[in-house]
Design a binder for these strands. Structure first.
Lengths: 251, 251
DNA sequence: ATATGTACGTTTATACGATACACAGTTTTA
DNA sequence: TAAAACTGTGTATCGTATAAACGTACATAT
């Protein structure tokens, strides 16, 4: 059942990502490296968007045929996952001093900004169960931020995961807002009162009337989104603070 | 600038969703209704998954040709969005008494379970800015749950949105876990210690060693996921509680 | 030195997807 | 009754992922 290297029970994509399986030594030398392929994919996605990212487009970028890529990668899915991890990169150095809250805040903010760097990073369905090297380092950094607390490991993992899920969905949402806001006919304050039955949607209409959906004078769209992101983040951190306080009380 | 019906500045998909634009009276009678088309799409997605949802598959389901669907819908994207809103349906009746917390909890839990009903609901990228009738009723219900608080409307909207984003990503994540867990070679406790460099991933390895990733004896997978969902939800609600307390203090 | 086997990149072919467009038939309206 | 609007269909285009067969290059075993 087991073969030479004990790593080969692992799926090929995992081995590839962690550099555990080099190509054989026989045969013609390779014209490319996996990283070159991934970089080409990243370049295409960065500049032309996720929907433009196709095997043929990447191959063209490299001056190779479409099918040649399959010598480096088993499927398009695999390529995208590996490219994603390479694109997001490792987390930045976090201040090793400071409260868990400051560190977790910095960590979440860095992830948010990373995902805001290029839209396609949020368009690809992110398997948040981290299996790839960089993704794993983000997880490690998040857990590290909580290392000084008295929480059990299970709770730490839950917290890091919860925040990460929130960050990802906020980043995606802000990107989507950005593209749909282009259509000015769709702004809430104008449309909703015309469409909604006050009997069925009283609270929405109340919020609209109170101006909750007015996006007045926005000069810096990115900063505006980040503020919304921060709102939820602070609620989460407040809630985690409550939990930590409780765990310290019963210490 | 304005034409007969004042609604026609709105994009066609919005008009369709709210039933504001019927077909003209001239020409042959239609063989289908929009709702029939949507129901067929929902049936396909429910039973065969999101990736099986194609124009030709839906048409086949109805006994019509692929192109006939374009008489009811402008594009596949539009069909999916309308079908999504129809599939999720309106929110359930929430207890009109009870604290904001109980009501918001019930609301979030209902959304979570709705999204857990069929996987494809989380596979489709959800524009959480609610433009569709049912989606809008969910928003309304969420705002209603907060109506008795002293928060300003802006904060209410932020809160409802934040929770909704969290719910959606949790539902999606749990679905993804479910399909990737099938591959037992990939479970963390086995793989991680073999792969990770302890220098680079100390905290992850510590968590693994403490058993934070052991998914021992799970009889009811859905209940297990829902518990994880609840963890984050309670952190959020705790954080919102802090905010509400603050707003009442400065009342 | 030579034979062998393996890995390389290419070519060709398949199957499926969304949707633009032209068409012929049907029903209402002027 | 003629025109206009709308129906569903059939055909065609273009793009996608990827399976399979092929000839070539080259490290290793003999």
């Amino acid at each position: 059942m087991s073969s030479p290297g004990s790593e080969d029970e692992l799926p090929r994509n995992v081995r590839l990502a962690w550099g555990l399986s080099g190509p054989g030594t026989r045969g013609p030398r390779r014209g490319l490296t996996l990283d070159q392929v991934l970089d080409a994919a990243i370049a295409v996605a960065n500049t032309e968007g996720f929907e433009a990212l196709s095997m043929s487009r990447v191959a063209k970028e490299l001056g190779f045929t479409t099918m040649s890529l399959y010598r480096y990668v088993d499927s398009k899915d695999q390529l995208v996952e590996l490219a994603w991890d390479r694109a997001i990169g490792p987390p930045p150095e976090l201040p090793s001093e400071g409260s868990w809250r400051e560190r977790l805040d910095a960590w979440a903010t860095a992830e948010y900004r990373g995902l805001r760097a290029y839209r396609w990073l949020t368009e690809h369905p992110i398997r948040t169960a981290p299996y790839w090297p960089n993704n794993m380092r983000w997880l490690d950094a998040g857990l590290g931020a909580l290392s000084a607390t008295l929480l059990d490991e299970d709770a730490k993992v839950q917290i890091v995961l919860t925040i990460s899920l929130y960050v990802i969905s906020r980043a995606r949402f802000s990107w989507e807002l950005e593209s749909s806001l282009v259509d000015h006919r769709l702004d809430y304050p104008t449309v909703m009162p015309r469409i909604l039955d006050p009997e069925k949607y009283p609270w929405v209409l109340a919020a609209v009337a109170a101006g909750a959906f007015d996006d007045d004078e926005v000069d810096d769209l990115a900063a505006w989104h980040e503020q919304d992101f921060r709102f939820g983040l602070e609620r989460l951190l407040d809630g985690i603070d409550v939990l930590i306080g409780r765990s310290e009380a019963t210490r």
